[in-house]
């Protein structure tokens, strides 16, 4: 059985900046995302009859996402939808790219402290704690930004520092703690699910090599989808809580 590493391994470094294998996968997803976005906006300039089938498929997915998120976001849907859908599609791509054959199984040889190690060239980016914690941090920061932008800083800060009575002062303190715990809750939920899936697939493949990992692969596709939904929905719910008036 190959060595399972909890953290992403360094493949090479550029001017002292370590490039890990999960970062490479992450770059691939960003590139793919960019290509799809460019393609979509190019197709939008064409007349309706000349647009391709892929365009309408992307459009359909976009519409389905929009109608999923609009009941949660309410009147601010047009403002907040791009952020939430961006989170959803980015995490979905990251999760599913980690399941492709070759990711995690293509090994390269590196020399480290006069020893030779074999490390995977690619690794699912959400199976790295750095990615998921930074996604959680981004989500919580965006929540604060929208709260301040839509309510005004005076109204928004009242949620955390309220000196009207002792109870709301205490709940404000709890709110501050919960904002910080959200970051780790987001990060560990995504990381735990995806990394556990990768470990499960590896272990099953070495227990029963033929066909046994197929149902687990289907399960992992579902889990990857579900985690993207959960991340985006939770972000949407937290933003809509932050921008709603409180008393």
């Amino acid at each position: 059985m190959p060595h399972i590493s909890l953290k992403a391994e360094k493949v090479f470094e550029i001017f002292g900046f370590p490039i890990t294998n999960s970062y490479l996968t992450s770059l691939m997803v960003i590139f793919l995302f960019f290509i799809i976005g460019q393609y979509y906006s190019f197709q939008l300039t064409l007349p309706l009859k000349k647009r391709s089938g892929l365009f309408f498929m992307i459009n359909y997915i976009n519409n389905a996402l929009f109608s999923f998120f609009s009941p949660i976001l309410g009147e601010n849907t047009f403002l907040i939808y791009p952020v939430v859908a961006g989170f959803f599609i980015y995490i979905l791509f990251q999760n599913w790219l980690g399941l492709l054959p070759g990711v995690g199984s293509l090994l390269i040889k590196i020399h480290h402290h006069e020893e030779t190690h074999f490390i995977p060239l690619l690794r699912g980016a959400t199976a790295d704690l750095n990615t998921t914690i930074s996604l959680g941090l981004l989500s919580v920061l965006i929540t604060q930004i929208y709260g301040i932008r839509l309510l005004g800083i005076k109204e928004y800060i009242k949620k955390f520092f309220n000196l009207k009575n002792p109870i709301s002062f205490f709940t404000g303190f709890l709110e501050i703690v919960s904002e910080f715990s959200k970051i780790f809750s987001f990060g560990f939920r995504l990381f735990g699910n995806i990394f556990a899936g990768e470990v499960l697939l590896t272990v099953i493949a070495f227990l029963l090599p033929i066909l046994a990992s197929f149902p687990f692969l289907l399960l992992e596709i579902f889990v990857g989808f579900m985690q993207a939904v959960v991340f985006a929905t939770l972000t949407a719910v937290f933003i809509s809580l932050a921008v709603s008036k409180h008393h």
């Binding site: 959960v230 939770l234 719910v237």
Partner: peptide
Amino acid sequence: TTMILAIAFAEAIAIYVLVVTLILKFT
């Protein structure tokens, strides 16, 4: 939708335990 969200919150507890277990196992 609400059920899936609530389940995700409850499942997060199990995932924390899983992360701790993985850290114990693989470090």
